[in-house]
Design a binder for these strands. Structure first.
Lengths: 399, 399
DNA sequence: TGATTAACTCAATCATGTTGAGTTATCAAG
DNA sequence: CTTGATAACTCAACATGATTGAGTTAATCA
């Protein structure tokens, strides 16, 4: 089939020549993408050296990818003697990735091109996020997107879908983020049948982490974490370039962890979350329903908000300590549905624990950085999952 | 080359037919192993169905593995009509895995066969665990092991090596577990040159977790964690069948995390570790230097020890809450250098938080189980790393 | 200007998986 | 006790895709 595969057929555990080609094609694409993020390009011979493949093999793959419109030649480069190497780059609009975020009251959609650039965004209001209502909204959204010029079903690599966790029946019942009627649905195949596209399901924090990898502040990193402000507070973990789901897809519920604060032990998201901020404001009779409200308060130096910020920064330090000790990430990105300026303020001059495995002298990245913010972060991340998949040589796990 | 590869040559990122065969061979082996742990066996056709490979491909691989002495036919089985399927099993002594644990004062070694059974164990005292001293001890140990009957260099798949973290220079200086003179050594290639074998490096907790997977309580699980009593307290995390290292191999330092206790916030290993136990005993003028001493105290219901146990169980509950929320494991195993009876006592009737993503009604495994204990756990785990590698279809991550 | 170098192409070869046509051994129905 | 159905397995031809070695081309260097 194809390297950046569109076929919905489930992959089996065994490998064959087709799979080999798919794997190698993904390697070629990831090399080109990696070069492009550095403002660079690459030629056949260089890719062959990096991959350990023969030049001929790379040549064949490049011919194939070029013919399919995913890459194109972009000049030559002299590297000293010898014939100049023809350079290749990824065609921004050679293919697209679709991302959906299902929320209790709406369906968000983002379409990314191969450069990770947002091509369009859509929002559909939902009365109730039942499977039927979501299915209808997804179908309509897809139809609307296919109507755009230059878009065909064949050019969509797949769909990433973000759903609020926790998945399955858990001890946390009555949790606001749980959706009605989804318990008995195997979501991946449900979505693949619905959209006629390969589907990837993730929680919001992992998707946000992928977004940072595809077009954000963690490009090129293989190990990092992403604290994500969504309904509560989630943690996306990327290890070896792949998201960490846990046994049931419920990993990253960092908001539920009790942490030690000067005021006593509390769940992290009782302090460090959008809801916690709004509660704190409300207890001082200030309402801030939207991100814009919060941003405005921050802009005018609202003392109640600054008070919360001090609390939140203490909680954040504890969270960082936890994450660094447990996961040893290259960095931690802070992102999600909070005003960017507020994230900046949270991140700035944190009194981080220096007695940590993360306090390395040779460190080049800051221990915490501000990632992307805004309400569409999760839908963007959903689409990023698809791009990551297209650019990452895969494995199947054993029995 | 070979599927259970012995060659030291670094694998490249690109795939070819040889790599495909290697991948598929590992799948066949893992299927047979999995069946064997269930007291079962498997035939060609069954493996073909599981892998998605053709029967012919499986047949070829089986012929190859059998010829190399890694598997053998073990009777036939009637599954109703049709020709009975020839069953295969892994030859226990078809190959071996070597495991080393480097400690500040000694080098421990364990040799496992393909069934994960311990063939021999060795201990070499070290004055100081400098690279030179360790190299000499490793060389001598390997020579002694090769002298055993039935053992040849070719039958050793590789060496797993466990070293106390943290790796590299970190903010935690003066840490007792840091070894002298290792900062500037790329340990994997150092060990491969030294032993002329493929080498895998891990921290103690991850290795212990692998040991549970190969021959312990977590066989067949893809997602779990392992709380490990070593020098302090470590957490081994297996996600998707692979150990989680973090960016620098320092993941799992759960002992350093501050947790909220009735007595105030403290690092977890200030309560839950062998050293904490010994300190607690010492503050009541009881000395217990060895595991036997501790086991004896426990056996005679020493009130000071029981007092510690109550404290430790509270801390353990907090740790479990942390791990479950962050990693969503299938289960958590408790293991390491503590008397088994004490681990049992820790695990028994824990007042676990029911408000957790882990409190699932359909859960079949307990949320926490007792794993293997004893001083050789880490060296065993080191060898288990090699077996896991031999039985797990691999990938190389992209650039 | 010619030697050197590196990128690249072409054609032959090789490893491996797949496919389809048998063959064999067992069960079950007549 | 025969016969047909069924499933495991083998054999041979084929397809895919990577590798190899012998050119070819276009640069730099002396």
């Amino acid at each position: 089939m194809t390297s950046v595969s569109r076929n919905t057929k489930r992959q089996s555990a065994g490998a064959n020549s087709e799979r080999t080609r798919q794997h190698n094609s993904k390697f070629v694409l990831s090399t080109l993408r990696h070069a492009q993020t550095q403002g660079d390009t690459a030629g056949r011979a260089e890719i062959a050296r990096l991959s350990g493949l023969s030049i001929q093999a790379v040549s064949n793959i490049i011919a194939d990818l070029e013919q399919r419109g995913l890459i194109r030649a972009c000049g030559k480069r002299n590297q000293g003697r010898g014939q100049p190497a023809v350079q290749y780059e990824i065609c921004a609009n050679g293919a697209y990735a679709l991302g959906f975020e299902v929320r209790p009251d709406a369906l968000f959609c983002t379409l990314l091109n191969l450069h990770g650039e947002t091509m369009c965004q859509k929002r559909s209001a939902l009365m109730r996020a039942t499977p039927d209502a979501v299915a209808q909204a997804m179908r309509e959204t897809k139809t609307a997107i296919l109507a755009e010029p230059g878009l065909a079903h064949e050019k969509i690599l797949g769909a990433g879908i973000v759903m609020p966790g926790p998945f399955g029946t858990t001890g946390i019942s009555g949790h606001d983020s749980e959706l009605p009627g989804w318990q008995d649905i195997e979501i991946t195949s449900w979505a693949e049948d619905l959209l006629k596209l390969p589907a990837l399901i993730e929680n919001d924090a992992n998707a946000a982490a992928m977004a940072e990898r595809i077009s954000g502040v963690t490009q090129g990193l293989q190990h990092y974490a992403c604290l994500y402000f969504g309904a509560g507070l989630g943690l996306g973990v990327i290890s070896n370039g792949q998201a960490l789901h846990g046994a049931r897809g419920n990993a990253g519920e960092i908001g539920h962890i009790r942490i030690a604060l000067p005021s006593g032990a509390q769940p992290l998201e009782a302090v460090l979350s959008r809801l916690a901020l709004q509660d704190h404001l409300k207890s001082n009779s200030i309402t801030a329903d939207t991100s814009e409200d919060i941003a405005a308060l921050f802009h005018e130096n609202c003392p109640t908000l600054l008070e919360w910020l001090d609390l939140a920064r203490i909680a954040l330090c504890e969270a960082i300590n936890l994450i660094e000790n447990l996961l040893d990430p290259s960095t931690i990105a802070l992102c999600g549905a909070m005003p960017g300026a507020l994230l900046d303020a949270l991140v700035k001059d944190l009194p981080l624990n220096q007695h940590s495995v993360a306090a390395r002298p040779e460190r080049t990245l800051p221990r915490i950085i501000r990632g992307s913010s805004g309400p569409m972060t999760a839908a963007l991340g959903a689409a990023a999952l698809v791009l990551n998949d297209a650019f990452t040589p895969q494995i199947t796990t054993s029995a």
